[in-house]
Nucleic acid binder design. Structure first.
Lengths: 159, 159
DNA sequence: TTTTAAAATTAGAGCAATTCTAAACAAGGA
DNA sequence: TCCTTGTTTAGAATTGCTCTAATTTTAAAA
């Protein structure tokens, strides 16, 4: 987040998003740009609510509808990935586009990215063996994250 | 669905579910049994609403809360799998417990099961390379299903 | 049996995420 | 300038899910 390399990277992501909007003949409104800026800089997996609050600081009049519309567009353009969720929980958006696994902690809800090149192989395997016109695949892992493991140990120790 | 082999299989699944409830010291109420029966027989990926309507025919007074409670219990017992969903869409439940990929059609929303033993290998790979306490993984594919592919071809032909 | 206590079910209220709608607003081209 | 089209906005509507309090069922004890 604070070194040159990642700054360059977030800037690239930001420019790519704007470019994509332009090429789709969509206007680069200040609101859309603010949303893209936030998405390109975050390393978390924000919910529409997170995005709304972040952008709200700059644009106090922004509406939730604009957030939902913009992320829908960015998703269709392939600039972000919509992470599915269980139950009534909110959607989250993924800005990391390189092949990776999402590790979901079932205790705290945090999502970790785990890079895995092999995913392309897995894609090929599935694609070649079905008559489905496969566009992309997504791997999710569920379990307990390192932070929660420690917390659980401490709880047990003090019990 | 209609041959001996699959009948036996659905029956096994049904018995396994009842057994699991019993072992967890939960009562085998008629409502729970009806829900298990429906789940063990379906080949689809039903939503709580689907389950509610199916069981409602037999138990006109059944409440949605009972459906939600029962699937939560069955999920905790590992008898069914909760499929995550995007946006406001409803959860779906998976009754097929052997390793497989869920292929989601982005046009019609159908979900297809694609068996893949390799998933256990992938699990091991991820598990061995992270300090996450991995419990299970889930692979989803997105694309256009064969049925929709044909429909799209026809639409194009007639256009 | 009848009694009793715990467990389960029910209907409906409550909640939170998302979508919809109609009006206001902004931008670019004639 | 006006006109058209695309965008944003606020808030209402909708939906899926959870919670709650009252009622009913269950299984086991007396």
């Amino acid at each position: 987040m604070s070194n040159d390399r990642s700054l360059t990277r977030t800037d690239e992501r930001y420019q790519a998003m704007l470019q994509a909007l332009k090429q789709a003949n969509l206007r680069l409104t200040p609101q859309r740009m603010a949303i893209c800026r936030y998405l390109s800089r975050t390393r978390s997996h924000p919910t529409p609510n997170d995005i709304f609050h972040a952008v709200h600081e700059q644009f106090p009049t922004i509406s939730r509808a604009t957030v939902y519309n913009t992320v829908a567009v960015l998703k269709d353009l392939g600039e972000i990935i919509e992470l599915s969720c269980t139950g009534g929980a909110s959607v989250r958006y993924e800005t990391e586009l390189t092949p990776h696994v999402n590790l979901n902690c079932t205790r705290c809800g945090r999502i970790y990215d785990f890079p895995m090149e092999k995913i392309n192989e897995i894609f090929e395997t599935i694609d070649s063996r079905t008559d489905f016109q496969l566009e992309n695949i997504h791997i999710k892992g569920y379990g307990i994250c390192p932070i929660c493991q420690k917390e659980l140990e401490q709880e047990e120790a003090s019990a």
